[in-house]
Amino acid sequence: MAPLRLALVPGEPAGVGPELCVHLAHRPRECALVALADPDTLRAAAAVVGRPLHLLPADADARGPGELAVVPVPNAVPTIFGTPDPRNARAVVDALLRAADGCVRGDYAGLVTGPVHKATVNAGGIAYSGTTELLAAHARCDVVMMLANPSMRVALATTHLPLRAVPDALQPAPLERTLRILHAALRRDFGIEAPRIAVLGLNPHAGEAGHLGREEIEVIAPVVTRLCAEGLALIGPLPADTAFLPARLREFDAVLAMYHDQGLPVLKHAGFEQAVNLTLGLPYPRVAVDHGTALDLAGRNAADPSSMIAAMQTCIAIARRRSTDRHG
């Protein structure tokens, strides 16, 4: 089987992403890594990490220790680690979009991304709510954000919204689309033939039979009932405060949380270092680190590369599975 080529985007150049890419380049791997990034920033990160970095042409089979193939995406101004500059926002977004273009064309089998600093991108004059949303708009498809670690998978019905906006966003049609995408991805990308999905309620105690809110009765339960009638294995709406008990979690292949901070704090507490962020529903695998830019650690060789390594390994596994499915 031909070696995979994965696109690698560091994210915010002033954050820990470039250092994580250097660490990744020194990991044994079954794929060639093609970084879409500013070469000078990568070299500066290698100096911080204290490891050699060999930047190769974009079409090179970069699998050796310290090797990265590079598609140059120059920053507007030099990187100062720990101090993001809005003038570099365009390069950050362009790197992501060029990588996405390459994935759609088939140049890359998947995309691995580092953390992006949302405030800096917006300060650079680019409306940006997250890489998940950016890639969904680029591919013109509905997607689902899911974080995963060795002990659980948690997908989100809503993502980067103010808490007061969540109930209005929780509507039957998008909830149904989310569950269908999640179910399909668990089958295709994780090889789970009949996924069991826990669907959380929105309110405390899953609404307490309507006494603490009616979203469970009016929105969530009807969608669950309808999809269960089609053969999906959905359980819920469940109270969020007990759904994550270890004994209960063993009954599920994934949990669908209704909003960002309902499910992700539990997952990160249970295994932050090994967690990854997946965008389900794209025409290619996209896996990211589960943490932010860590500006306070940037330039100090203090960042833990575990999540970036797990992101690469997860992306390889999904890309391999998709390739096997395509070729029988």
Rank of each mutant, 00 (worst) to 15 (best):
A254M: 03
A247I: 11
H205C: 09
A155W: 00
R250S: 15
T158K: 01
A221E: 11
H205Y: 13
E208A: 14
A257K: 01
P195S: 07
D261N: 03
I181S: 00
E230D: 15
P204W: 12
A185E: 07
I235V: 15
E216W: 12
V223E: 00
L186P: 07
T158R: 00
D241C: 08
D241T: 04
I192Y: 08
D168W: 05
A243F: 13
P195V: 11
N203A: 14
R180K: 13
P167K: 08
A243D: 02
A157S: 13
Q262N: 04
L232C: 06
P246N: 10
Q171W: 00
I217R: 09
E208K: 08
H260G: 01
A185Y: 01
C228T: 09
A194Y: 04
L212R: 08
A221Y: 06
A155S: 06
A243E: 06
P222T: 05
L238F: 05
I220H: 01
H160K: 03
A165E: 06
V166Y: 02
R180F: 03
F190S: 12
R226L: 13
R214W: 12
F244D: 02
L161I: 13
P237M: 12
E215R: 03
L182C: 02
R248P: 10
L186K: 09
Y259D: 07
A157Q: 01
V154G: 05
R248Q: 15
N203L: 12
T159C: 09
V255M: 08
R196F: 09
A243R: 07
L232G: 12
I220F: 14
A221M: 13
H183D: 15
A165R: 07
P222Y: 02
L238Q: 10
L156P: 00
R177C: 06
N203W: 14
H205I: 14
G207R: 10
Q262S: 12
F190Q: 10
D253T: 04
A240C: 04
R226H: 11
L234M: 11
E230T: 14
P195L: 03
D253C: 10
A169S: 11
V199K: 03
L232P: 06
P162M: 13
A157I: 11
A240R: 05
F252A: 10
H260R: 04
L156K: 07
G191M: 09
G231F: 09
L170G: 03
A173M: 08
L227W: 01
P162I: 11
D189A: 11
